[in-house]
Design a protein around this nucleic acid. Sequence first.
DNA 1: ACAAGTACTTACCCCAAAGTATGTATCATG
DNA 2: CATGATACATACTTTGGGGTAAGTACTTGT
Lengths: 120, 120
Amino acid sequence: MTAIKESSTRNFNKQISAISCPVTYVMNKIGGHWKPIILYHLSTGQKRYSELRRAIPEITEKMLIQHLKQLQEDNLVLRTAEPVVPPFVTYSLTPAGARLQPVLDAMALWGLDDMAKGNN
Amino acid sequence: MTAIKESSTRNFNKQISAISCPVTYVMNKIGGHWKPIILYHLSTGQKRYSELRRAIPEITEKMLIQHLKQLQEDNLVLRTAEPVVPPFVTYSLTPAGARLQPVLDAMALWGLDDMAKGNN
DNA sequence: ACAAGTACTTACCCCAAAGTATGTATCATG
DNA sequence: CATGATACATACTTTGGGGTAAGTACTTGT
């Protein structure tokens, strides 16, 4: 699981930043190139693993699962597996994940606005 | 600076993600451990370089300037230098930077809420 | 003469995030 | 009997973000 060197200034700073700064706390949860995109695709309804893969062709399987796992640990997405073969796994937003919607919307709004004017 | 290898899948993905996903676009601008904190300190009014340093003692000078530069390039903060000696430099938010306020607030709100309930 | 304050710059190193590539188990279908 | 689909796992390498430490140019205070 990408074992993190517990004794690194790097990680220590990350921790205290997350505790003292709620914005950084959010950043640690939805940061990274792929998480917002995954969250977006799940915001339109639950999806199977393979559906997500096809919806985001640029992402590698490793990255997809890795981030899905982290999002699960962070209690933002829910994994539901049907014990059948071939496997049938669906991912959906948890309530906490759904509550992120206004945040993502606010960000998207600002982003689009900023891209439009480029510089004010 | 930190010269970026232009031909890396890594950076390429970052670029296209930022173009196609406005949320990622925002993330690239205010991501990193220090940027939100710097932005927060500037949101309460313009500050001198040394004031910022004292306000955020954990940050190193290298990181401070590096991020201030990036924030300038991203048109979020404005640098004003009085041509005197000793140097007198103040940093303040640009209109675009100020417009970020509601976004940061939304994030902070969610963050605090999420920290409070931990898991729903 | 020397320390301290101003606002940086520069060289060097480490590490975690991201990418590449391949493997696994099970079943259905041609 | 081999290919494809499902949902992953895992070993290996690269690279960009971040940290450490030291230096620069100029002036004021002691």
